[in-house]
């Protein structure tokens, strides 16, 4: 069962009344998201991630293509769809002089909650998002991290089946980011929520997402699990060595070695397959009388995949 089925979505923004400039933000994007999955959209600035999320959340009308979300066509059935989804962004903004409890209460009422049910929901969300100490603080007096938590609480007010998170941990300190990520993972595990998020933090994508779609210049370039993407891009594994003598020029010419670089006293050799190449490499070094003082083997990081794809 698909939560999202978008096909050939395009969107071009026009700005300026007199001789408008056109920006093609999406050029034929197709994306499917199964129910209960966490899918990450990665891509450089201006790639079209927010645009895509906004279209899926009915905030923006696509120029062409078909978009079905939770079984509703976004063009024809937006009103019913809106009850079942919600969205939060990492740069949130709400009415400045309203207090935290009042903001969540306002949106709760918009989604049809009232009386005791509303009070219970507001209490629950304030508790969940660790806002108890700030319930009566005006929004304008909150720190970035607290504002983001208010946004997250607001986005859960209708217990959505589908949640869009646009850079949910933007500008948060590592400790808070870890907690927010844990919340997101819990939402899926405990409530079966489908979550589509964008992020610039590769750790986050690697940790949270079942699947990643890589967007660049308004098109999806690659799609898969973090592991699949790493293999698909064929970045190879990295064997890092601390050698004595430290520089060994012939290492780059060894079969299976794609490239070598010195990074902070370590020689980092990127090879097609670490398990296959490591014994040969050690044997050759030993034969040349080079002492191997230390060794580390790692898979490429998602960040390297990102850099490769964004190039």
């Amino acid at each position: 069962m698909l939560a999202i089925d978008a096909r050939d979505v395009t969107k071009t923004f026009k700005s300026g009344w007199f001789r408008p400039t056109r920006t093609a933000a999406l050029r034929g994007v197709s994306l499917t998201v199964p129910r209960g999955a966490i899918v990450g959209l990665l891509g450089p600035n201006g790639a079209g991630k927010t645009t895509l999320l906004s279209i899926l959340a009915t905030l923006l009308t696509p120029d062409s293509g078909s978009v079905t979300v939770l079984g509703h066509d976004v063009a024809r059935d937006a009103a019913r769809l809106r009850r079942r989804l919600n969205m939060a962004s990492g740069r949130p903004s709400f009415l400045w002089s309203l207090r935290v409890g009042e903001i969540i209460g306002f949106y709760g009422r918009l989604y049809g909650l009232s009386g005791r049910q509303l009070r219970r929901r507001v209490d629950e969300l304030i508790e969940l998002c660790e806002l108890s100490a700030h319930r009566r603080t005006p929004y304008s007096e909150l720190s970035t991290g607290l504002k983001q938590r208010v946004a997250l609480a607001k986005s859960l007010v209708n217990d959505p089946e589908l949640l869009f998170l646009d850079e949910p941990t933007l500008g948060l300190d590592p400790d808070v980011s870890v907690r927010v990520r844990r919340h997101i993972a819990d939402l899926r595990r405990e409530r079966g929520m489908t979550i589509v998020l964008t992020t610039h933090y590769m750790r986050e994508a690697d940790e949270l997402c079942d699947e990643i779609a890589f967007i660049k210049a308004g098109a999806i370039l690659a799609r898969g699990t973090p592991g699949e993407l790493k293999r698909q891009i064929r970045l190879g594994d990295v064997i890092a060595l601390r050698l004595d003598p430290p520089a060994v020029p012939w290492l780059a010419e060894t079969p299976g070695v794609l490239r070598c670089a010195e990074v902070a006293g370590w020689i980092e050799c990127t090879v097609d397959d670490a398990e296959k190449r490591l014994p040969d490499l050690l044997r050759a070094l030993h034969a040349e009388g080079v002492v191997v003082r230390n060794i580390r083997v790692r898979e490429p990081e998602l960040e390297e995949v990102f850099v490769e794809l964004a190039r």
Binding site: L59, R82, S93, K154
Partner: peptide, 15 residues
């Protein structure tokens, strides 16, 4: 009010 505080989209995201 929402235009001034740049929060307009939230109320139109609601049903």
């Amino acid at each position: 009010l929402d235009v001034w505080s740049k929060s307009l989209k939230h109320q139109f995201l609601a049903p």
